[in-house]
Amino acid sequence: MDGQYFFELAFSGLTRGSIYALIALGYTMVYGILGLINFAHGEVYMISAFVGLTAAAICSLLGFSLWAVLLLTLLFAAAYGAAYGYTIEKVAYRPLRGANRLAPLISAIGMSIFLREYVILAQTADFVAFPSLLYNLVEVDFLSDYIGSGELILTLVSLTVLGGLFLFLRYTQTGRAMRAIEQDREMAMLLGVKVDQVISLTFVIGSALAAVGAVLISSHMGQINYNIGFLVGIKAFTAAVLGGIGSVAGAALGGLVLGLVEAFAAGYVSSDYEDVFAFGCLVLILIFRPAGILGQQQSEKV
């Protein structure tokens, strides 16, 4: 086995995986609290990419430095992603609280279709170029054989954001409230946790993370269109399920595992089947171990 190739694949897997992890967190946090698969999450990701494009263009037209462009783009996209996430929850999910299980899911699919078409109509149905914000920022010597400087920054940024989220969930009042609702919504409500607010916040945070992921990966790929949310959404969802949906650490782990599986499958088997592997993973996990790596097996009470 070629060591160089192996490490290249490993780093490529790590890069993808860290992005999947970012997006997976949105799915897993919402599922943990509402028991809902937020089908429109991929669309938030896609919209954030478009917002990021606009922001990046404005910033560079204004002649900011590369670092400033990257940071402002990330901030702007995250703010908009968060606002979209908040609005989606308010419009499509909140009125359905307490309805049967399928209603919010169908509503989510409807929202997802709506947002795709919205972007097609507002912007374009074609691919558009996305600036590579991550390159030429730093010179990296020590890993340059295996990973480009852009990928390195991408991985570092997403890992930093992930770390920040963990700290937030563990050490802040709000983070504890989220975990309380996850355990038992009614009990949390009785204890004075403002459930609606916390749910909104969950969407805000999850969407902002997806937006960060969107900007990073779009500048890595170099182009975006209205359809990018679907595949990434499914893959991030796979990551969330892989790690055990509802578990934050699981989502991070699942993202990394999926990224590595994909990279190695593409590298050693065939890159045509990269997506098939991801979907295959998803189907197999849901069928054979729906609780995921870190989740607990649940059974319905009779």
């Binding site: 209603a103 509503s107 409807g110 109509l121």
Partner: peptide, 20 residues
């Protein structure tokens, strides 16, 4: 025709909320 899918999506959401 141009707005067809947009309306599809919006209708799905609205139907679930107002007339499931």
């Amino acid at each position: 025709a141009e707005y067809r899918m947009l309306l599809f999506g919006a209708l799905m959401v609205a139907m679930m909320i107002f007339r499931p």
